[in-house]
Amino acid sequence: TEHYTFHTEEQAQRAAKKFKKQGLPVTIHEKNGKFTLQVN
């Protein structure tokens, strides 16, 4: 499991699309105004 932190939801969504294209499951969590992208 890898985690990436982004300052905006837009950045997180863009990164999520790249991972999803590779067939990886992705979840985004919002915490304290930051967005954490979790790749399993």
Results as ranks from 00 to 15, higher is better:
8 T>A: 04
33 G>D: 03
16 A>G: 03
28 I>G: 00
15 A>S: 03
35 F>D: 01
29 H>E: 11
31 K>T: 10
29 H>A: 09
31 K>A: 11
14 R>S: 07
16 A>W: 05
40 N>E: 11
19 F>H: 02
38 Q>L: 13
13 Q>I: 13
34 K>G: 07
26 V>Q: 00
19 F>W: 07
40 N>K: 09
38 Q>G: 04
24 L>C: 06
38 Q>V: 15
17 K>A: 14
18 K>Q: 09
16 A>R: 04
37 L>G: 01
30 E>S: 08
34 K>N: 06
7 H>M: 11
19 F>S: 00
23 G>L: 03
5 T>V: 13
17 K>N: 11
33 G>R: 02
31 K>P: 00
8 T>E: 04
20 K>P: 00
35 F>G: 01
1 T>W: 14
39 V>H: 03
20 K>Y: 08
35 F>P: 01
39 V>S: 03
7 H>S: 12
22 Q>I: 11
21 K>Q: 13
36 T>M: 11
22 Q>L: 14
12 A>K: 00
22 Q>W: 13
28 I>R: 02
28 I>H: 01
15 A>F: 09
24 L>T: 06
39 V>D: 02
30 E>P: 05
22 Q>A: 12
2 E>Y: 14
12 A>Q: 00
2 E>L: 15
25 P>M: 15
20 K>I: 14
13 Q>F: 09
27 T>R: 07
4 Y>C: 13
4 Y>P: 04
3 H>K: 11
35 F>Y: 11
17 K>D: 13
16 A>K: 03
27 T>N: 05
13 Q>D: 04
12 A>I: 02
2 E>R: 15
21 K>I: 09
20 K>G: 06
29 H>W: 12
17 K>H: 09
40 N>I: 13
36 T>R: 06
1 T>E: 09
36 T>A: 06
38 Q>C: 15
14 R>V: 08
35 F>A: 02
26 V>Y: 08
19 F>Y: 08
39 V>I: 12
13 Q>Y: 09
1 T>P: 10
32 N>P: 00
10 E>I: 09
32 N>T: 02
14 R>H: 08
27 T>W: 07
29 H>N: 07
40 N>L: 13
25 P>T: 15
11 Q>W: 05
11 Q>N: 05
28 I>Q: 02
11 Q>G: 07
38 Q>S: 12
26 V>P: 02
32 N>F: 06
23 G>E: 02
36 T>E: 13
14 R>P: 00
39 V>A: 03
35 F>Q: 01
11 Q>V: 04
1 T>M: 12
24 L>V: 10
32 N>H: 06
33 G>W: 01
17 K>C: 15
25 P>G: 13
5 T>P: 05
20 K>A: 11
12 A>F: 01
8 T>I: 04
